[in-house]
Design a protein around this nucleic acid. Structure first.
Lengths: 126, 126
DNA sequence: CTGTATCCTGAAAGATACTG
DNA sequence: CAGTATCTTTCAGGATACAG
């Protein structure tokens, strides 16, 4: 039985507009994942979100929420009251992301131990 | 029927060492996701990986591979030949990540259209 | 071929102060 | 309350050259 050579990897393996790059919680946005989790349980106000997002500045929170709104994952609702009240909530589209996120979370719960062990092992060996 | 108030979000909702932050393909590493995909089909050499990873520099590829090796997702095998030959492959642990990654990819295939539409809609409205 | 060594850039994030 | 305005920092990533 002969060993079949592995197919070479083509230069165009990844299209220029590779879809996964655009997944809201996958890009550079450091806080997006946590924001999704904060909104999972229902609509939240700006100041309410600042509580669990320890260390986030209002600037960064506003930027992150706007980016997620642009992607259609979050909806911003402004109430005409005084004092002003604004609520952020997940859209139906945003909710569909929770499933794949749960899959990642399950992975990390299951394998984080192995990962940390690998890091220690690497340190000892180098 | 009275409206039950939403539970407030606690300040310690996210533990300091929140596990998902450590998932190899989720952190800052821009190329990790693609590298995983390149190794999915079998072991690959350094120069082989550079083909589909268009635009990556040797420095960044080396850094990325080392980080993934530290996390136990990739194994580096050096062959004592001349010219030198090194192969990178997914570890069993690394392979377990492919499932959750597939879930994200499926999401993006299914919902990328809605996302792009939301971006256009946002632009028109602002 | 498989990287390392330097230096540089840019974009997101953080600090701080202020406003409708 | 819900942000905006500035300024600074940081650090992954990129450019380029070179080495075992």
């Amino acid at each position: 039985m002969t060993q079949t050579a592995l197919e070479p990897l083509p230069p165009d393996l990844f299209p220029a507009d590779c879809p996964v790059e655009s997944v809201p919680v996958l890009g550079g946005r450091k806080w997006a994942w946590k924001i999704m989790r904060c909104l999972e349980s229902g609509p939240r106000r700006f100041s309410e979100l600042r509580v669990p997002l320890v260390g986030i500045t209002p600037k960064v929170l506003a930027e992150s929420l706007r980016a997620m709104e642009q992607d259609g994952a979050v909806v911003r609702t402004e109430f005409d009251e005084n004092p002003p009240r604004v609520e952020y909530a997940l859209t139906p589209l945003g909710r569909t992301l929770l499933g794949p996120m749960d899959a990642m979370c399950a992975w990390s719960r299951e394998h984080l131990g192995s990962l940390l062990a690998a890091r220690e092992e690497y340190e000892r060996a180098h």
